[in-house]
Amino acid sequence: MKNYKTHDYEGLIAETIQFDSANGDSINAYLAKPLNEGKFPCVILIHHLPGWDELYKEFTRKFAHHGYIAICPDLYFREGNGSPDDVAAEVRSKGGVSDEQVIKDILGAANYIDKLDIFNGKTGLFGTCSGGRHGFLLGCSTDRFDAIVECWGGNVIMDESSINDKQPVSPSSLTENFSGSLLGIFGNEDTSPNPKQVDEHEKLLKAENKDYVFHRYDGAGHGFNYYDRPIYRQEQSVDSWVKIFDFLDNKLRS
């Protein structure tokens, strides 16, 4: 955390909770909160296609360590109970979960955070891979979120052949509705999204005068801050986290 000194108190609590989705039912989330005095902004984490996994629990605690209320809904809760990668494989075999359901789950999480005494009133979103795509989609669907971090969101640009019942709209087609500030993090060796798709994404944002900034990294592909996978790129990952916290601190703490 910025301005941290070694004699400062640090503490957080992290646990599984249940909350009401705007879908009309309840699902689990992993919630991490600072134990320091004061009020804190919130980051809602939108997990990636590999699932509600240990990596995302660690990301959630990371945000709390940096002074955010962090909540990561289990977007696959309804699909079954098993190891995260087995549940994710089952979800993948069914073509994923619907955009509509994800939007309702994230809005439900935002409603849950609204009621916390320690909440300062500002909410950001953080998502990687499909979570990055969902973050951008949410930014185009509501003005609820002040800052959105989209890491390598694949299928933000969708062609007609990719449109389906669960993903009925290309998020890029909704760019004019985007509200809030956007930070995009991309690897230039990624194939989904590839550099041309990122160019197109940026072109649309520029055309609509949206508040955005992209950081695009050479020598890095998809998922380059997944330290538990061969695709991890240490230098680019460390730099991207600095950019992410600078962005969120600037947008959510003022």
């Binding site: 990636h48 296609l49 590999p50 993948r92 075999s93 073509g95 994923g96 891979c129 499909s130 390598w152 694949g154 299928n155 990719s162 989904s192 998809h222 998922g223």
Partner: peptide, 9 residues
Amino acid sequence: MCTMIAERA
């Protein structure tokens, strides 16, 4: 994670 290339046998 992102290709959604999936077949079932």
